[in-house]
């Protein structure tokens, strides 16, 4: 969210879509998965394309109509955080492979969310307390339950992680 708040939606989506690249790199380093030289060339090409896009976009500030004005340093921070999010998500997928064979998706989701929410608490509670709620409209309040039910809960139940992990680098 912090990454998305500092960059454009498209750049953030592009950075997060690097998950398969990070996954392959993570698997290739300990030689868990063999990567063909042509595949490495494909990865390098995609990273060059991504870097080209981000450099071009970071060089100038972006205006998001009616929402916010983003400076080039905002864009750089947002893009780097989004890339980090992609890398962390890849690491999560690789390390969770063992767990997905022993726990059902609802179980795994519950356990990891409880631990994750607790680790977010030191940053989240102060942010929550300093939030000015009187300026928050119903539209935004409706986005909160949407963000819980649709992009995470419902979609994770539909997309069985055990199946996804089998094709993690496809």
């Amino acid at each position: 969210m912090i990454g998305l708040a500092h960059t454009t939606v498209f750049a953030s989506a592009l950075c997060i879509s690097t998950v398969p690249i990070w996954t392959l790199v993570i698997l290739a380093v300990p030689k868990t998965e063999r990567v063909h030289p042509v595949q490495w060339a494909g990865i390098a090409l995609s990273l060059v394309g991504l870097a080209g896009f981000l450099l071009a976009a970071t060089g100038r500030s972006a205006e998001v109509p009616h929402i916010q004005h983003l400076t080039s340093s905002d864009l750089l921070l947002g893009n780097l955080l989004s890339l980090a999010a992609g890398a962390l998500f890849a690491l999560y997928g690789v390390t969770n492979k063992r767990l997905t064979s022993r726990y059902s998706p609802p179980e795994l989701m519950c356990y990891t969310l409880l631990v994750g929410t607790l680790s977010l608490a030191p940053f989240g509670i102060p942010a929550l307390l300093s939030q000015s709620w009187q300026h928050v409209t119903w539209r935004t309040l409706l986005i909160v339950p949407y963000s819980v039910l649709f992009p995470i809960y419902l979609t994770n139940c539909l997309e069985d992680p055990r199946d996804a992990q089998r094709h993690v680098v496809r």
Binding site: M1, I2, L4, A5, V9, V64, I67, Q68, C110, L113, L114, G116, T117, L120, A121, F123, G124, I125, A127, L128, S130, Q131, H135, V136, T137, R139, T140, I143, V144, P145, Y146, S147, V148, I152, Y153
Partner: peptide, 23 residues
């Protein structure tokens, strides 16, 4: 959709409420 919410909500506050409800 989240980008719209950030005009009124601190992203960290949004994330924390989201994960509290999700948990």
């Amino acid at each position: 959709i989240f980008k719209i919410a950030f005009t009124e909500l601190d992203p960290l506050a949004f994330v924390f409420v989201r994960f509290l409800l999700l948990s």
